[in-house]
Design a binder for these strands. Structure first.
Length: 216
DNA sequence: AAAACGATCTACT
DNA sequence: GTAGATCGTTTTG
């Protein structure tokens, strides 16, 4: 996809994020994530995997025990980034729901579609299917680090999300438990595309219609 | 000041 | 499947 065509896609607005976090996580599948790495260099692709972290009764949420310096972005307005470090990597979340309500969606994997050569340089030579498969790899491929924590994703600059030209049909969406969490691991809050080679971790899941938790 | 903890990843069996 | 690397952040003393 050309840079001109990418920039023509409508930027997701504040209202998209100001809704229940599970709904946002599910609807993020198929949306574009863009990173302007350098003037004229757009990195990104379409989201194929995302996890919701609830503001209430979710002990896996970084904000479960209240506000700290690290998680402050989660308490801000919706539509901003929450970027944190884990081990030697970073993870990108989008903040949802009203200001003061610390819910967010972890972006776990992308289908790489723009700036692939630059992303391969940032990741080190690796197959296309491993370029952004996993939240840490995704951030490495897009050059995302803690400096982008708190970034306003509705500006359409530097880091933003955009609607795709064609939507994902509901029957391609599967739901399952989140990956890597040590508590509240049973909650079906991970949304991903069926039969997608760019999805990370476990590929098995239930159809959206079969999981009551997935229907806000 | 020290200890403990991962929303991860890679390598290996 | 499991083990271990590795380090910023949080918690504890």
């Amino acid at each position: 996809m050309s840079e001109v065509a990418c920039r023509a896609l409508p930027v997701l607005s504040r209202g998209f994020y100001d809704r229940p976090v599970q709904l946002v996580a599910r609807e993020l599948l198929g949306k574009w994530l863009f990173r302007e790495w350098a003037p004229g260099v757009l990195l990104g692709g379409r989201i194929v995997e995302a996890e919701a972290y609830l503001a209430e009764n979710d002990s896996a949420n970084h904000a479960f025990r209240g506000r700290t310096r690290r998680n402050a972005s989660m308490f801000g307005p919706p539509g901003h980034a929450y970027v944190y470090a884990i081990h030697t990597r970073y993870c990108l979340n989008v903040v949802t729901e009203a200001e003061g309500v610390p819910s967010a969606v972890l972006i776990r994997a992308l289908e790489p579609l723009s700036g692939v050569e630059t992303m391969q340089q940032l990741r080190g030579a690796c197959p296309l299917r491993e370029l952004a498969r996993g939240p840490g790899k995704l951030c490495q491929a897009l050059g995302i680090d803690r400096r982008l924590d708190g970034w306003d994703l509705t500006l359409g600059q530097t880091l933003w999300l955009a609607d795709s030209a064609d939507a994902i049909s509901a029957d391609r969406i599967l739901v399952g438990p989140r990956i890597g969490v040590t508590s509240a691991k049973e909650l079906p809050l991970r949304f991903f595309l069926a039969n997608c080679p760019f999805v990370s971790g476990h590929r098995r899941g239930l159809p959206l219609s079969a999981s009551p938790h997935s229907r806000p």
